[in-house]
């Protein structure tokens, strides 16, 4: 049997928020190590990879590996019924065709349970090799969200150009052109406000704004975001999830025709 207990169910609400714009359904692979999810969006342009380690949960038990195919719109309906401070328990039997979500209020005076049907999904899993990226940019996640939102007004694509001086985000279209440059922060009071760049080689790549904006739905999960880039390979946008692990988004670049 599978059982995972989470004292603050807001984390799972945020995770759901972070994936439901890109994915209609996904398989949650549960094992002793934790919960993992890997799925591409419908057009196979981007890929979401989620890792929630078992030791992040307040209680975790997984006797047998279990793949739960979940319709994310259905799960969203259920998670909307939970208060942010509710204690969440997810339960499923081995080989079950349903999963149960139980919400308990902090004072334990209200207990609700929701049973959800699982679906069979034949999802492709891609092997993503360990990669040494030419540029790794760390910046405040709110700043990244703001830049993606602002630039999407100017064009469908964003050019991200990273040198050791800093990182430049550019877009151009009918209105005109927009450029946002961020330099590495010299010194900041709070680590989460820092912009840092580790660069082996300068990189310039072009990406679709639409997907970058979808990735920023994860902003609530982490104060910082990490962008990893190398020439001619997908961008990795990573948000750490506290004691649990991370959510990573991979986005194939646009190339000159």
């Amino acid at each position: 049997m599978f059982e995972a207990r989470l004292v603050q169910c807001s984390m799972l609400k945020k995770v759901l928020e972070a994936i439901k714009e890109l994915l209609n359904e996904a398989t949650f692979d549960c094992s002793d190590a934790g919960i993992q999810l890997q799925a591409m969006d419908n057009s196979h342009v981007s890929l979401v990879s989620l890792n929630l380690r078992s030791d992040g949960f307040d209680k975790y038990r997984c006797d047998r590996n279990l793949s739960m195919g979940i319709n994310l719109a259905s799960m969203t309906k259920i998670m909307k019924c939970a208060g942010n401070d509710d204690v969440l328990t997810i339960k499923a039997q081995d080989n079950a065709d349903n999963v149960m979500f139980m919400f308990e209020s902090q004072n334990q005076e209200k207990v609700s349970d929701y049973d959800m049907k699982l679906i069979n999904l034949d999802q492709e899993h891609l092997g993503i090799p360990e990669t040494d990226y030419s540029c790794i940019i760390k910046m405040p996640s709110g700043e990244f969200a703001r830049i993606c939102r602002d630039l999407s007004q100017f064009g469908e694509s964003v050019v991200i150009s990273c040198t050791k001086e800093g990182v430049k985000f550019s877009a151009a279209g009918d209105v005109g052109a927009a450029n946002i440059k961020l330099a590495q922060t010299a010194n900041v009071d709070k680590e989460e406000e820092a912009v840092t760049i580790e660069m082996q080689e300068p990189v310039t790549l072009t990406f679709a704004c639409r997907y970058l904006n979808s990735f920023t739905k994860a902003t609530a999960l982490s104060p910082q975001v990490q962008l990893s880039m190398s020439a001619d390979v997908p961008l990795v946008v990573e948000y750490k999830i506290g004691d649990f692990g991370h959510i990573r988004y991979y986005l194939a670049p646009k190339i000159e025709e």
């Binding site: 591409m40 196979h44 342009v45 981007s46 890929l47 492709e124 899993h125 891609l126 092997g127 993503i128 090799p129 694509s157 072009t206 679709a208 390979v233 997908p234 991979y250 194939a252 670049p253 646009k254 190339i255 000159e256 025709e257």
Partner: peptide, 14 residues
């Protein structure tokens, strides 16, 4: 113009 690449161009099926 730029052409959008597909994720499967980069990573193989596991």
């Amino acid at each position: 113009t730029n052409k959008q690449n597909n994720m499967k161009k980069y990573y193989d099926r596991r």
